[in-house]
Simulated assay, not measured.
Amino acid sequence: MKNRIAADALWNDEERRQWMSVLAEAETDDLEALWDRLQDKPSYTVLHGPETGLIMVQARIGTMSGLFYLGEATVTKCFVTFDGQGIGASFILGRRPRHAEIAAVLDAMLQDPSKRGHLMASIIRPLDSRRQEAERLEAARAASTRVEFFTMVRGE
C-alpha cells in the first residue's frame, strides 16, 4: 500500500506533468537528437511496450454541454525502469515507439533529483523552447490569413 501512495504522489506532481507534456509534444527528431547528445545514458529495462493502441477521445461543445465521444486516437505507450529505481512512463499520440521509449527513460531519469537539473537544462527546456517557437510561428501564420469584417449601416 505504501508504494501505491508514493506512485499516486508522483502522478499528481505538477513539475512531472510539465516535463511529460514537453516530452509527449516534442518532435521525434528533436527528441532523438537531444537524446543522442546526452552523456551517461543509463541502462534500463523495458517493463511494457512500446506498444500502440487506441484511446477514446472525449470532447465538449461550449461550457454548458456534456461530454461526448469524439472518436478514437492512436497512442503509443511504454514503461521502463532504470537501476531498479523509479518507473518511467510515456503515452505519445501516434505510432512512435522510439519516441515513447526515449520519453519513458527520460521520465524515469527526471524523477531522480540528482539528475533532474541537468536534464531540465539539456533536454526539457530546449524542447519546450522549440515547441513555443513553433506555436508562435503557427499563430503568426494564422493571423496573416485573418479577415476583418465590418458592417455598414444603410440609410443613415
Score class of each variant (00 low, 15 high):
residue 74 T to L: 08
residue 57 V to G: 02
residue 62 G to I: 10
residue 53 G to K: 08
residue 62 G to T: 08
residue 69 Y to A: 08
residue 67 L to G: 08
residue 66 G to N: 05
residue 56 M to P: 00
residue 43 S to C: 11
residue 58 Q to G: 09
residue 50 P to M: 12
residue 58 Q to A: 07
residue 53 G to A: 01
residue 48 H to R: 15
residue 45 T to Q: 14
residue 70 L to M: 15
residue 79 F to Y: 12
residue 49 G to M: 08
residue 48 H to T: 01
residue 73 A to W: 00
residue 49 G to V: 02
residue 48 H to A: 11
residue 61 I to H: 05
residue 44 Y to M: 13
residue 70 L to I: 10
residue 74 T to I: 13
residue 74 T to K: 12
residue 54 L to V: 13
residue 80 V to G: 02
residue 63 T to M: 13
residue 78 C to E: 04
residue 77 K to S: 08
residue 73 A to P: 03
residue 64 M to Y: 07
residue 57 V to Q: 07
residue 77 K to H: 02
residue 66 G to A: 05
residue 69 Y to K: 11
residue 81 T to V: 10
residue 60 R to G: 06
residue 75 V to T: 02
residue 81 T to W: 03
residue 44 Y to E: 06
residue 64 M to G: 15
residue 62 G to A: 09
residue 76 T to S: 10
residue 66 G to H: 01
residue 58 Q to H: 06
residue 61 I to T: 10
residue 56 M to S: 12
residue 65 S to V: 08
residue 76 T to Y: 04
residue 67 L to K: 15
residue 46 V to Q: 10
residue 60 R to E: 03
residue 71 G to F: 04
residue 70 L to K: 15
residue 51 E to D: 09
residue 77 K to P: 00
residue 82 F to L: 14
residue 54 L to A: 13
residue 44 Y to D: 09
residue 72 E to D: 06
residue 68 F to G: 05
residue 61 I to A: 13
residue 66 G to S: 04
residue 56 M to K: 09
residue 59 A to L: 06
residue 68 F to Q: 08
residue 76 T to Q: 06
residue 54 L to I: 14
residue 65 S to R: 14
residue 63 T to D: 14
residue 54 L to N: 14
residue 81 T to I: 12
residue 46 V to Y: 10
residue 57 V to P: 01
residue 63 T to N: 15
residue 62 G to Y: 05
residue 76 T to L: 08
residue 80 V to R: 06
residue 66 G to V: 01
residue 81 T to Q: 09
residue 43 S to R: 15
